[in-house]
Each structure stands twice: as C-alpha cells, then as structure tokens.
Amino acid sequence: MKTDELVLLLATGVEPVEPHPVGRRHAVAVGVGLLGAGALMLILLGLRPDLAEAVRRPMFWIKLAFVAGLAWASLLAAMRLSRPGMGLAWVPAALAAPALAIWILGAFVLAGAAPAERPGSVFGTTWTSCPWLIALLSVPAFVALFWAMRGLAPTQLPLSGAAAGLLAGSLGALVYCLHCPELAAPFLGTWYLLGMLIPALIGGLLGPRLLRW
C-alpha cells in the first residue's frame, strides 16, 4: 500500500474523537483501584478498631494529607506521561513536597522525643508488615492504571510505569490509613514511603514491557 493510500484510508469517514480520554481513563482506573483496595482491606485486614477516636487527632489528617498529596502529584505525572511530548515540567517538585514535609515533621518529632522513645516512633509496632500490606493494597490500582495507560500513548516507558506504580502505591496507602494504627511522622516517612515505592519500582521495571505500543 502506498503512503498516499494509507493517508486516504485513515482520513476517510474519520469519526470525531471522544473528549478527555486521558482524564477519563485515569479517573476510571483510580476509582477501580480505590474500590479494589477498600475491598481487600475490609476482607483481609479490617478497619482499625479505634477509627472513630483516631479521626479526632490532627495527626490522622496530616497522615492522610501526606498520602493524598503524593497520590495527587503522581496522578499528574501519570496523566502528563500518557501524552507524547508533555514531559513532567514542575511535577517532580510536587512529588517531592509531601515527602520533604513528612521528613521535616519527623525530624522535629525525633528531636523532641526522649532518646528511649525514638526507636518507637520510627519502627512503631507494625514496621515489618506495613510496606508489604501497602504494596498488596496497591495491586488493583496497579492493574487498572496499566490498563489506562496502555490505551494512551506513553513514550517514556520506564518513567511512565514508575509513575503509574507510585500512584497505585499511594492509592493503596490511602486505603491502608483506615486500617493502620501508626501515626508517628518518622514511621510514615520511612515505611509508608517504602510501601509506595515498591509498586513504583515494579512499575518502572515492567513499563517497557507492558506499555509498549
């Protein structure tokens, strides 16, 4: 087939495109991911028993804001990377901000604590399971987001996979907040971050294979 024939074929009877495909696919994936994580959390882990009391503590909301900030920034990253030629622009700064904020808060907590209390605020009581459970809860969002991106056009595949993975991880962590008893900033800045980085790393490794088009 000559190129002119192909051009004619593509243009003939061309249908109007549906608007906002990038936002729509990501919205669907985020919704599916949150519902999936919620179901997994309720079935496997359960809500934290003192949730009604915990929501009265400011640190509970600071923790949610930290995770939601990362989710928002990684959503922007994933959406930009789904469009060829968009680049990340200022999004890396938006990604770094929540992490820096929780580390600064954590440094103050550690500095103000008695030496004997410091290990407790870093390790809490659940550090061995926390990152793995966040990674587990991120699985539905991970699958849904890779589906969303496969229908779009990422050209930087490792980076796009990592952004989708980080978004999945932060959505998993958001739901995990309803189960997890830990509220100390040093704990969050270590184990929550690690839990979110596990799917980001896996996403970065799988990106070139799964997102190729």
Partner: peptide, 25 residues
C-alpha cells in the same frame, strides 16, 4: 508513525505545541 499518530490523535492536548507531540511519537 502515521498509523500511530492516527490511533493516538486523542492524546494531543490542544494547549501543547504540536511539534513536541509529533516529535515524541
């Protein structure tokens, strides 16, 4: 590339330089 551009034409953001979009693809 023409097929790719046609299949992904919905990912072009009207506010973005077209050169950058085509060049990336």
């Amino acid at each position: 590339a023409l097929l790719a551009i046609h299949n992904q034409r919905q990912t072009y953001d009207a506010g973005q330089p077209l050169t950058a979009w085509v060049h990336a693809i």
